[in-house]
């Protein structure tokens, strides 16, 4: 892709999300989402092969339908209440709105497109898909969260964490595993959304850090499946060792960063007299932990005693880029500064 076109696409990707962030009007928010979708499709089909085109088509159909439903719900709302402010949604329409946003985000019963789309695109575009593309719908959801029934959000959240964990168990493709991990993390985010949006923000922030770290690692290691991970300790031993820890952080093991949002969310849910839900959420995190553990087994905890049958990439970069080292540190060691992070949000 020519750099000018790439620049236009990336800047309109940013423009769409920013438009949604800044708007208080449903129509403008919808336009932002549309611009966003329009801009990412060319990025997805950048490498023109059947899988990329298929992924782009699937992404387009779901996002366009979800955006249409979202606009329908807001027109319905306007028809009844006579105004378009995002913060003032009446409750029955907000359910439809939540479901539309859930399709956009890939939250559990509406999640089927996400692993398939992830599988078809490159790792760097996948990074955009599971980080930047989540922001605009989540911003909308956060603004209407006080009008959504908490039961709906908790059911969606529980389904996401369970299905996100369950779906990833059987996968061998890294991108699909990361898609299921994204589903599970979004489940944590939206199950706390009604009670404490600031906590959902913290969770989103930590999720972004950990996901960016993992995607940068996989991008650097250039490995699309679990099997090819086993070779990486010889390419970059320190990266292999730390990214196993980063995977466990993604699974939420203390004392790594990933434990912090889980701890805070469980605490808030317990304060809301939802201790059984909190237990269920916590135990469903074990499902995702299983596949993170499997990834880290093959990434760094098993080393073949003999020479491995696979070949090394001849153009493998051996130096770890600075941003990755920075993100890795944040992924591993932010639990002790939890009070600082809480005070930031």
């Amino acid at each position: 892709m020519s750099p000018y076109i790439l620049f236009v696409m990336l800047s309109s990707l940013g423009l769409g999300t920013t438009l949604t962030f800044t708007s208080s009007h449903w129509l403008l928010a919808w336009m932002g989402l549309e611009i966003n979708t329009l801009a990412i499709i060319p990025l997805m089909t950048n490498k023109h092969h059947p899988r990329a085109v298929e992924a782009a088509t699937k992404y387009f159909l779901t996002q366009a339908a979800a955006a249409a439903i979202l606009l329908f719900a807001s027109i319905y709302n306007a028809w009844y209440s006579g105004q378009w402010f995002i913060q003032d949604m009446s409750s029955p329409v907000s359910t439809l709105m939540t479901l539309a946003i859930a399709i956009k985000l890939g939250i559990a019963p509406m999640h089927f497109w996400l692993p398939e789309v992830m599988q078809g695109i490159s790792i760097s575009t996948g990074l955009i898909l599971v980080t930047w593309q989540k922001l605009a719908p989540l911003a909308l959801l956060m603004q209407i969260s006080h009008n959504i029934k908490p039961e709906l959000l908790i059911i969606l959240g529980l389904m996401s964490t369970i299905i996100g964990g369950w779906g990833g168990l059987n996968q061998t493709q890294i991108r699909k595993i990361m898609a299921y991990s994204s589903i599970a993390h979004l489940g944590w985010i939206i199950s706390i959304l009604h009670f404490m949006p600031a906590l959902a923000m913290i969770n989103l922030f930590i999720y972004l850090i950990m996901t960016i770290t993992m995607f940068m690692t996989f991008n650097l290691l250039n490995s699309p499946t679990i099997n090819t991970l086993a070779m990486n300790w010889s390419k970059s031993p320190i990266l292999a060792a730390t990214s196993a820890l980063a995977l466990l952080s993604l699974g939420g093991l203390p004392p790594l960063t990933g434990f912090m949002p889980k701890w805070l969310i469980i605490q808030e849910l317990t304060n809301q007299e939802l201790a059984p839900t909190a237990t269920l959420l916590a135990l469903s995190a074990l499902l995702s932990l299983f596949f993170y553990l499997r990834l880290s087994y093959s990434l760094s905890l098993t080393i073949m005693p003999n020479t491995h049958p696979q070949t090394l990439n001849w153009n493998m970069k051996t130096t770890t880029p600075l941003p990755l080292s920075l993100m890795m540190m944040m992924t591993l060691t932010m639990l002790p500064i939890t009070p600082t992070i809480i005070s930031l949000f």
Binding site: L253, W263, I266, Q267, T270, N271, A275, A278, T279, A282, L283, A285, L286, L289, F290, L293
Partner: peptide
């Protein structure tokens, strides 16, 4: 890992 975690995650909820 899983025996210990399955036992201790309810503990976290109980503690909180």
């Amino acid at each position: 890992l899983f025996y210990t975690l399955a036992g201790s995650l309810p503990l976290l909820v109980a503690l909180l």
